[in-house]
Design a protein around this nucleic acid. Structure first.
Lengths: 300, 300
DNA sequence: TCCTATCCATTCAATAATGAATATCAAATG
DNA sequence: CATTTGATATTCATTATTGAATGGATAGGA
């Protein structure tokens, strides 16, 4: 047994973590503000202490081994704790200058947040914004972000959250597509047209079933899981598809379908942040701004 | 802005973490195998970098400030990730020697595990066992342990788990108590006796209600949330109370009550471990041993 | 009240970690 | 095929970090 477990120097882990993320010793050295030989030594020593090879040395950089990848999962946890620690400390120090990281679904990041962030920057120029578009699972949301904009109520315990608004949804199609195919006047008409679906999720199928239309996975003409691309497929005239009205109505090339007959359920918008960051004034400021801006965005 | 966020040296955090746990610079230094001045400097520099006071210097040691405590939550996360990292690496290195940390409820730790662990040590003397009795909430279980013995099915995602057995339960009372009060022959008789309850949990109340006895919180003569103490209260003759038969039957001063009429639901035993540790042969060995031993314990 | 044990801060010599410079290699580029 | 780019290892002087020793201070016990 080689000394105490606690005696494992965290500096080695920090360097290791940076190498995994950067993909090279040099890159990691730049990230950490240190020199390449130092990082190289750290990695070498960590491999020595743990008795495991962590990387295979390749000419273009270091590629993690299987063991290296598993260990990287742990250092990622440490990394996210460390960055959050920094945020907490910043909050205590009362420093308003700095960065706030916002994560949101890809679609929201694409179509909704840019304008809001642009305005926010004018009001609070001392706060920089990092936007992280991501459709990752719930418990990984805060690995890289301070505030999350999500379409569901969070179930985690250590977060504060607020229901902002409900975004209305509607079914859209490209005008060019409708010109070619004809405009459906009844649900049955629509059922004969093409639909753009999701690859994995069966949300759309369930919605259609609710309206009395039998739909299976084969029902869809085109499928794509990336929601932003999903919308582009609809825009390009691949068929019908659902979208937030705030996105659909803003696009002059698009047209609502069966407005009265096919009412989709509104999408709830939740703002979420880790409990520990509630005292950070900078994050608080962005939170408050987003709360208002997202509502106005809908009303407009 | 003071340099990059990533430039915060993890060594400082490690020292800080050790100081919080040890309660003093000297203690932390011993833990980490470093000198007291070094740790002191690390803490001082961390306070400088973060711009926050982390401790109030007291003559008997360092007491964390409010900010220090919040930040300690984060370093605790890092700490647990680091120790788990060590376990993963040990597994990869194929080293069977070393320690396995087991956590279990206070009662299980007290009455069931000691014998099993004693036997296990004879079979696998190269493996040391740390036993952590704890009734903490589910998602904190693995902060300090490799394997958890729990009385419920785990709901976390990143764990492997196995249903070992179901421990029969029965209602007990001290013989001396029954000699004094008289032995109840019907449920109604029993309802007039004293019960030992839990302070917060309302499990017992619900069970009694299921048997047609109306019970409220006031119904109990004595209440205590520490389950091991709860059992001692029953042993001391404070009243009736439920317990695993394996515990109750082993005690000659205790007696089952209303054996046929008051059948309590059996307590499931689950073995749980973090997914990431499934490849660690040492932990695997203990896991396998516990799986068998816990079952035999019941059958015997 | 004095003694002891334990703690933190400071000093300074010794040590360990660092980085600039350099050699070497491999892949991409024209 | 030669060139450029970006990578890793190695060396050695420099720098920063470290720890033994010391002093001061406090709480608990005889």
């Amino acid at each position: 047994m080689d000394r105490n477990v606690d005696a494992l120097d965290w500096t080695l882990l920090q360097s290791f973590s940076a190498v995994v993320e950067a993909g090279s010793l040099s890159g990691a050295a730049r990230k950490l503000g240190q020199s390449q030989p130092t990082i190289g030594r750290h990695v070498k020593q960590l491999e020595l202490v743990l008795g495991v090879d962590l990387f295979t040395r390749a000419p273009r950089g270091l590629v993690p081994t299987v063991a290296g990848l598993e260990i990287a999962d742990m250092t990622r946890d440490m990394q996210s704790a460390a960055t959050r620690l920094r945020r907490i400390a910043d909050g205590k120090a009362g420093d308003l200058n700095g960065t706030v990281r916002i994560t949101a679904s890809v679609v929201t990041s694409h179509f909704i947040l840019p304008r809001i962030i642009a305005d926010m920057r004018q009001v609070m120029p001392e706060i920089q914004i990092d936007l992280v578009p991501s459709d990752t699972t719930e418990n990984l949301i805060f690995r890289e972000a301070d505030i999350a904009v999500r379409m569901y109520r969070p179930t985690q315990l250590d977060v504060i959250s607020k229901h902002i608004c409900d975004q209305p949804m509607a079914v859209y199609a490209a005008k060019s597509y409708l010109d070619r195919i004809g405009r459906p006047e009844t649900l049955e008409d629509a059922a004969r047209l093409d639909f753009v679906g999701f690859d994995k999720s069966d949300v759309i199928i369930r919605v259609l079933n609710d309206f009395g239309l039998t739909a299976t996975r084969d029902f869809f003409a085109v499928r794509c899981d990336q929601q932003a691309v999903h919308w582009e497929l609809i825009r390009a005239g691949c068929g019908l598809g659902g979208a937030q009205t705030i996105i659909g109505d803003a696009d002059p090339t698009m047209e609502r379908i069966l407005e009265g007959q096919l009412q989709l359920q509104a999408l709830p918008i939740w703002l979420t942040a880790p409990q520990a960051l509630r005292t950070n004034p900078r994050i608080r400021a962005v939170w408050d701004y987003l709360s208002e801006a997202l509502v106005q965005q809908i009303d407009a």
